[in-house]
């Protein structure tokens, strides 16, 4: 099997398992809807104040949902005792990483679509003109979050208190990505052109490249368990 077909096999397995069990997606989507309520309750209904912190809230929603979703990805493999099967994958184990990463990207894209729609509906934001730029920022940021999340998820699946350690490891590493996406979202929603945030986009690309390359190179070390 080629690298791509092996990676595809992992994605297909994850999507199929999720389609039949509907465990992660349903819970994570519902969680992100609940977050919307929590934000509204804790920050009050003051439209002006809410508007000024909206880019932060939007990404906080995505990030918290990602912490739940990405952490599950490898825990499922352990609970169902499929870890050995992943280890038995012939050839380069980084194909498993690519497959898992793609599956996590799908999950996050779904969550982001829902969160973004709900935010525009409930928080009364006009994303229309900023949407193309916003989607670019969203894509680059999501890749960074998912790349580190997939790597650390494979690690913390084997660790005591994994629900605790996963965010503790992930959040500080993701500070550059978070700053980049929140600041660019802020600028784009304010109607600035994409050129204004080009330095943030470059930072996101650099972060994505570093995280994915490190993930590809070190994943087989983590898969050993």
């Amino acid at each position: 099997m080629t690298f791509v077909r092996r990676a595809w096999a992992v994605v297909w397995k994850d999507v199929l398992a999720e389609r039949r069990s509907k465990e992660t997606v349903n819970a994570v989507l519902f969680f992100s809807v609940l977050l919307l309520f929590v934000f509204e309750f804790t920050l009050g209904a003051d439209r002006d104040r809410l508007a000024s912190v909206l880019p932060g809230l939007l990404w906080l929603g995505v990030l918290l949902a990602a912490l739940l979703g990405l952490g599950r990805s490898f825990v499922l493999e352990r609970e169902n005792e499929c870890w050995e099967a992943l280890l038995l994958t012939p050839g380069d184990k980084s194909a498993v990483y690519v497959g898992k990463l793609a599956g996590n990207l799908l999950l996050m894209a779904l969550v982001e679509a829902v969160v973004l729609t709900l935010f525009t509906l409930f928080m009364n934001v006009d994303v229309g003109r900023a949407l193309p730029g916003l989607l670019l920022v969203l894509a680059l940021g999501t890749l960074g979050i998912a790349a580190v999340g997939t790597l650390f998820g494979a690690m913390t699946a084997h660790v005591r208190a994994r629900e605790l350690l996963f965010p503790v490891l992930l959040l500080p590493v993701l500070v550059p990505v978070l700053l980049a996406i929140v600041k660019s979202t802020e600028a784009l929603l304010a109607g600035e052109p994409l050129g204004v945030v080009s330095h943030w986009l470059k930072l996101l690309v650099a972060a994505d490249v570093i995280y994915v390359v490190v993930g590809l190179l070190t994943f087989d070390v983590l898969l050993e368990g």
Binding site: L151, V173, V175, P176, L203, I210, V214, T218, V221
Partner: peptide
């Protein structure tokens, strides 16, 4: 070791972004 590699390579990114 994996965390150490990610963490150390992340230092320049942290500096620029902050």
């Amino acid at each position: 070791a994996v965390v150490g590699i990610v963490g150390a390579l992340n230092i320049p990114l942290v500096h620029f972004s902050v």
